[in-house]
């Protein structure tokens, strides 16, 4: 059961990696990286149950948080070209 799940996750990781490598647009790559991070979280969770070390679930949580922050940072860079403007105010100025 867990073995089948981990195989499926590995295949999905491969597909996401292929999209990140070939992805023609920036958003393809961001989506691929986000999905890859999600699959890493799932893989670690499955590994935790597979090896009986459920304390690994904490690491999966940390990964989920980091993945979120990274994707938000990447999207902020793509849409605003910088990190120091808040977004809303800039639009009013323009």
């Amino acid at each position: 059961m867990f073995i089948a799940v981990s195989l499926a996750i590995l295949i999905t990781m491969g597909l996401a990696l292929a999209r990140a490598l070939t992805g023609p647009t920036t958003y393809d790559r961001i989506a691929a990286v986000n999905m890859f991070g999600t699959k890493t979280v799932l893989l670690i969770a499955v590994l935790a149950f597979l090896s009986g070390r459920t304390d690994l679930l904490d690491i999966a949580l940390v990964y989920a948080l980091i993945n979120f922050i990274g994707v938000v940072a990447a999207l902020k860079l793509v849409t605003q070209k910088n990190f120091h403007s808040s977004g809303e105010k800039e639009r009013k100025v323009e």
Binding site: G23, R29, I30, T40, L47
Partner: peptide, 21 residues
């Protein structure tokens, strides 16, 4: 360069996954 940074993120996630394994 942007794609390279994205792939660096994947690289880190992969190596962290290997550390967990």
């Amino acid at each position: 360069l942007f794609a390279t940074i994205m792939l660096f993120g994947i690289f880190s996630l992969l190596s962290a996954g290997l550390f967990v394994v």
